[in-house]
Design a protein around this nucleic acid. Structure first.
Length: 805
RNA sequence: GCGAGAGUGGCGGAAUCGGUAGACGCACUGGCCUUAGGAGCCAGCGGCCUCUGGUCGUAGGGGUUCGAGUCCCCUCUCUCGCACCA
């Protein structure tokens, strides 16, 4: 028998699979469609990351398993190649992204993805930077615009001084840029937004039924951040001005001792008292200079300034001072709050610092106690006029209703979610297809003029001016108005890269259509996606944006479903030797090296064996070697030969191990428990080698079950057993129930819950028979001698527990 | 602070229902084979003890149960997400 030469075998089958298009699905005719999606990679110059391989292989195992179970599996892949990441890298290397990206894609496809051995249908590849693709990204922008889901507004937006562009709220992580970790500042700019907030409630509601990893749903619920309360109207004393505040605790309205406006609140300038104007303006200037991190630093001491103005409390007509402080955010609620220091910790700190009144209005026992901190616990209302004695929860409703009757309040739901800021002042993205005309205003580019091509600029550096580099190209910038034909200019911002990735899975089945983004018939047949496997780091980015877009599509009438992914499974993260992988630590796993040295199969098997797929794992070099040794043992033991038995094995043990394995491996794969599935296969191999099993049926079943994990090796061995067709196209083996049960089982005999004996007894014997056999056993007799049996527990085919006294 | 998840040998990790804790693998130890081993094969491998047996043991403490890694309560530690969100 020749040696297991992985390089030869893998190259051979990769070529044959490629040439025969073994993974191509007839999308129109498929009877039993299963859309198996994985998160398409960003084609970096460094090459495929081991985390990508881990994610993709785990997804591919599902694809292969489903195909062997009768599904027509569509498993496409593509490249998310627009975006700041590519652009920054190109800038650093001094090349042009338009020249760099195709090279990277080529490397990903030919040298990496194909070698890994996933069942990709390469006839439906997608590249977001190709005009054939981004033409439709722009078209989608226009559909949203026409339907009122896209709007342009001047607003304080997140600005990354290093990337020199604005960012969406989701792309600011703890005050830092998601891409480069620079501190983000606020900047007032006119930007394009998508109305994600229009679907806040629906996105929240649907989380109750979509089949997604719980942790992903939790992250989304958190991010959407629904809170229920009341909007209450206050008036300014001596001014003809009123303003609204949002509160979740209208029951504490009698405890309001001051009001706070956010420094950005537009009403401030009109109400501030003359003698306080200088102080307020100085404070506003000071806050404006701070970064988000400085402003939100934990434990930061409260700052603020009195405005000199007074508000009137609608519940009792009291005059209360109005302050300005940066602990009130313009972007949430109404940008102004009522402060109840007795029952809100932030207000408590502020009031303590500035010597403002603290008035208890909720008490567990009806008494006022001195407070060390705000009291947020249960209790009844006190010092609250006619509401005294009302439990606070009831008070929330009653006070709101009472004010509502007078037109001073209403029940209100607030969301933390903001609209999606999609403008980017960068070069490497799809230009936003809008033209500005002095006469006609913002005019959408006619669909027939799409794509608005991204010009090949040699000088594409962002300049931090707040304008995209595209503005520096007169040929691009100046155009004519599609409506009146007069002189006009183009929008020069490009759209957020996350827009490209919010719809790529609609495009995969429809890559053959040049005249539409996605074909309605194919979309109806293949979408929503059956299974999406990916990293949870996209819980509030890609996965949220994709849901928004799908809901907008549904409203517009482009699709008839409102959730794009029927099932989403978040895989775990992998670390190396217990530590996070990072370039600076120099402990990054380069998949190419391992694939070359041990083979893609050994690498795949190891990644899936390393730990629980949904939890992540710890990558160790010895582990890869061990998996190579495992595959070597498969290779040397499951060999063809004249000595092979052709029919089902006769001995009970072999039948038991085989059928038990078939049953377990299928179950394990279905619940993504790949490490235990492989452990089962190792056990079966141990049985085969120990007992020198030489049985063709056993070998064939074995190769089928191992093939999702080690497709190359299993294909080669399958053919050597005399087959003309691929192992990947075989049916998954079916276990026979009776073979999974042995004639005897090992009973555990417990005395008072402690294991005292183990006995091999007949399977399925009645309780009485087992009992007499157990009581006959010498060990058992020794334990119960002179004692009384007070209780007997019998678990069929498993255990007997005797309780003695 | 709030929310979610986790804590099991020297290590990675098993243990659908409450029913043999430590599957499978790594590392290690001994043996076989070998000119050689970073190969292969066989055996051992949680701690302790009076060692064919006993006893303790799944972060710590309590509880429910015939029986708890698993269920309940309290405490501690770690990871992730959100965080001055009114």
């Amino acid at each position: 028998m020749d040696k297991y030469e992985h390089q030869k075998i893998e190259a051979k089958w990769q070529k044959i699979w490629d040439e025969t298009n073994i993974n191509k699905v007839d999308l129109k005719k498929a009877a039993n469609p299963f859309y198996n999606l994985m998160m398409f990679p960003y084609p970096s110059a460094e090459g495929l990351h081991v985390g990508n391989v881990f994610a993709f292989v785990g997804s591919d195992v599902q694809g292969r398993y489903h195909r062997m179970n009768g599904f027509d599996v569509f498993e496409p892949i593509g490249f998310d190649a627009f975006g700041i990441h590519s652009e920054n890298f190109a800038l650093k290397k001094g090349t042009h992204p338009a020249r760099m990206v195709p090279k990277n894609i080529d490397n990903f496809r030919e040298n990496q993805l194909k070698k890994v051995g996933n069942m990709y249908d390469w006839t439906h590849e997608v590249d977001t930077t190709s005009p054939e693709y981004y033409r439709w990204t722009q078209w989608i922008f226009l559909q949203l615009y026409k339907a009122g889901y896209a709007y342009r507004e001047k607003a304080p937006v997140n600005w990354c001084p290093s990337c020199k562009t604005v960012l969406a709220a989701e792309q600011v992580i703890n005050g830092e840029c998601e891409r480069c970790s620079s501190e983000v500042t606020k900047r007032d700019m006119a930007q394009w937004f998508f109305k994600t907030t229009a679907f806040a409630q629906k996105m929240l509601d649907n989380l109750d039924w979509i089949d997604w990893s719980e942790k992903t749903k939790v992250a989304q619920r958190n991010w959407i951040g629904r809170s229920q309360g009341a909007q209450v109207v206050f008036t300014i004393d001596g001014h003809d001005e009123s303003f609204e505040i949002f509160t979740t605790r209208p029951d504490t309205l009698f405890g309001v001792t001051y009001m706070v406006f956010s420094p950005e609140h537009p009403m401030l300038a009109r109400i501030v008292a003359p003698e306080q104007r200088a102080a307020v303006e100085a404070y506003q200037a000071q806050v404006a200079k701070m970064t988000e991190i400085e402003r939100q630093a934990e434990g930061k001491e409260k700052t603020g300034v009195f405005t000199g103005a007074y508000a009137i409390n609608p519940v009792n007509g009291e005059k209360i001072p109005v302050w300005v402080s940066d602990y009130v955010l313009m972007g949430y609620g109404t940008g102004a709050i009522m402060a109840v220091p007795a029952h809100d910790q932030r207000d408590f700190e502020f009031a303590t610092k500035f010597g403002l009144d603290i008035r208890t209005v909720i008490s567990p026992d009806g008494q006022v106690h001195p407070l060390e901190e705000a009291y947020a616990g249960d209790g009844r209302m006190i010092n609250s006029g006619q509401f005294d004695g009302t439990p606070y929860k009831e008070g929330i409703r009653k006070v709101t209703e009472w004010l509502a009757e007078k037109g001073l309040a209403k029940f209100q739901v607030n969301f933390r979610l903001r609209d999606w800021c999609v403008s980017r002042q960068r070069y490497w993205g799809p230009p936003i297809p809008i033209i500005y005309c002095e006469k006609c205003g913002a005019v959408p580019v006619p669909e027939s003029d799409l794509p608005v091509r991204l010009p090949e600029l040699e000088n594409y550096q962002p300049d931090g001016s707040g304008d995209s580099p595209l503005k520096r190209s007169p040929e691009f910038y100046h155009t004519t108005c599609p409506e009146c034909g007069g002189p006009a200019v183009r929008e020069t911002d490009v759209s957020d890269n996350f827009l490209c990735s919010s719809w790529y899975f609609y495009r995969y089945p429809s890559t053959d259509f040049a005249d539409k983004a996605f074909d309605p018939e194919l979309t109806k047949k293949w979408l929503p996606v059956d299974l999406y496997v990916g990293g949870n780091e996209h819980a509030v980015l890609h996965l949220l944006y994709s849901r928004f877009l799908c809901m907008a599509f549904k409203e517009i009438g482009l699709v008839d479903f409102e959730e794009p992914f029927k099932r989403f499974v978040a895989h775990g993260l992998i670390v190396r030797d217990g530590a996070k992988m990072s370039k600076s630590k120099g402990n990054v796993v380069n998949p190419d090296d391992y694939i070359r040295e041990y083979g893609a199969d050994a690498f795949r098997v190891y990644l899936m064996f390393m730990g629980a797929y949904l939890e992540g794992g710890d990558f160790r070099d010895e582990g890869v070697r061990a998996m190579r040794a495992f595959l070597d043992r498969v290779w040397t033991n499951l060999t063809p030969g004249d000595d092979l038995q052709k029919s089902e094995p006769k001995d009970e043990e072999t039948l038991y191990w085989l059928h038990r394995t078939i049953m377990a491996v299928g179950n394990d794969i279905q619940r993504f428990s790949y490490n235990t599935a492989l452990a089962r296969l190792m056990e079966l191999l141990n049985h085969i080698t120990k007992n020198n099993v030489r049985n063709k049926v056993v070998f064939e079943c074995y190769l089928k079950m191992l093939s999702p994990f080690a497709p190359f090796l299993c294909e080669e061995m399958w053919r050597r057993l005399g087959h003309q067709d691929s192992v990947a196209l075989q049916s998954w083996p079916v276990h026979v129930e009776e073979h999974t049960i042995r004639q005897t089982v090992e009973y555990v005999v417990q005395i008072n819950g402690k294991v005292r004996a183990k006995m091999n007894l007949g399977t399925g014997l009645p309780e009485e028979e087992i009992e007499s056999l157990v009581l006959d056993d010498e060990r058992v007799r020794n334990w119960i001698e002179g004692k009384k049996i007070v209780k007997k527990i019998f678990v069929p085919d498993k255990l007997v527990n005797l309780v003695i006294k």
